[in-house]
Amino acid sequence: MDVKILIVGVGGQGTVLASKIIGEAAQLAGLDVKQSEVHGMAQRGGSVVTHVKFGDDVYSPLVEPGQADYVLAFEQLEGLRWISHLAASGKLICSTQQIMPMPVITGAAKYPEDIESKFREAGVDYLMLDAIDTAGRLGEKRAANVVLLGALARHLEIGREIWQQAIRNVVKKRAVDVNLQAFDCGWNC
């Protein structure tokens, strides 16, 4: 097994937590793991990307263009920005959430219309998911990241109990229950 995942979104959306849980789960499954994330400036509402790789031996922590087995996108425009990292057999899992970037807010640029159709036209294997709504129904919109994670986890060769353990290990105690529920919602979607 040799899996390469790119998690993309907007600074502040919780991509780092999702990658932490993946890393933890892969380690519990006895695999070598590397991940790379960006801290600092971009976390203030800029485009953020986290690379996660696990398998028998991992060298570079970065996922190159055309190599990602999965792109997990927390925001539509960011999903679109990174489709060129998908491998031919890769899959995109994308939140329907849209966050307007400042050039759109100031009128200097336009937010692309109907992004889903762009995925279709490009021939991308994708799944769109209203993760905020799902998490909102659990009473915790901030768990949207774990809903998305659940939707990804179902495709990976790591058992569900391992994922649940990983969530328990990583998430703050009082948020464990809602995150386990969020994970299930994603897994079952």
Binding site: G66, A87, P101
Partner: peptide, 20 residues
């Protein structure tokens, strides 16, 4: 060795960091 399977979409709006 690392060529994209799907072409990148050109001309997307940038997302620079912003004050929160």
């Amino acid at each position: 060795k690392y060529s994209p399977a799907v072409n990148a979409v050109e001309g997307l709006p940038q997302r620079p960091p912003v004050m929160c």
